[in-house]
Design a protein around this nucleic acid. Structure first.
Lengths: 141, 141
DNA sequence: CTAGGCCCTCAAGTAGCTTGAGGTTCAAGC
DNA sequence: GCTTGAACCTCAAGCTACTTGAGGGCCTAG
């Protein structure tokens, strides 16, 4: 009569959508608490562990770094700390995401120009005469 | 009466906009040829080396991986290979850049919603009651 | 009780560099 | 010619966030 069954690491991984070694890795670096073990040494988990792991994974999806997630998790556990801290973290993260997008847009523009000039100028020609290679050799804008 | 002076690694790094160890690293992995040395063992470079390094750096700016750059560089050296190869590489790279942008846009949307709900719902409140943390714990969409 | 699937630990590998330790060489100034 | 200090040298380890592999132990269904 098992009310709360206890999850194996494999099941936990499957439900959280990550690999088994990743879970062991998170435990090792302190992102997850040390798991309980049964007699033989196998890790046993409960639903609360799954929630915690899902939280971590979702934060990773958001692009937070592991040190950042440690902070987020601490705030979650600690009733005395305001979640303004979390908002600030998310906000500066958002700024970083936007900056990255900006970079990528510039990159996309350059790259598509590059491909275009490839098409029109030298496809089929030999390497050294390729104007496109000059393009790549020119200093960045 | 030195016509071509010969550049030190430090000067080369400065002109190419990268660090000195990076240049040594590129040489080690075969992205740059083995540099000439003077008697004491210091590396000596000429303008052609600078061009090659700038080419590599520009490719890195474009986000090409090191194996990819090796291909690009080979095509440059080898007169018999068409630059269509380069266009293809650039094109698939462009596709990857666009995919990444797509991801980042979704991420930005999620994050800004998150920050917003933070603002309106619980800034100043204690951690555990923060609805935002629930948000982060919810499975990903 | 046994088969085989899941679990364990520890070590090393991934990309693209950076950082550090400990020592040598070069070039300018005296 | 000699000294000084900046720049150079090599080799090794560190960084992020994991993954992969070797070599073995546990657990449970039949």
């Amino acid at each position: 009569m098992a009310g709360a069954p206890g999850l194996t690491i494999g099941v936990l991984a499957e439900r959280a959508g990550c690999s088994v070694p990743t879970i062991r890795y998170y435990e090792e670096i302190g992102l997850l608490p040390q798991a309980d073990r049964k007699a033989g040494g196998h890790r046993v988990y409960v639903e609360a562990d799954l929630r915690r792991l899902k939280f971590v994974r979702r934060c990773r999806d958001f692009g937070f770094s592991i040190p950042e997630i440690k902070v987020l998790a601490e705030v979650m556990e600690d009733g005395d700390r305001s979640c303004a801290e979390i908002r600030d973290l998310a906000q500066s993260h958002l700024a970083a995401v936007r900056a990255k997008q900006f970079e990528l847009r510039a990159l996309e523009r350059d790259l598509s120009r590059f491909v275009e000039s490839c098409e029109s100028a030298c496809v089929g020609g030999p390497g050294p005469q390729c104007t496109v290679l000059d393009d790549l050799s020119r200093p960045r804008v």
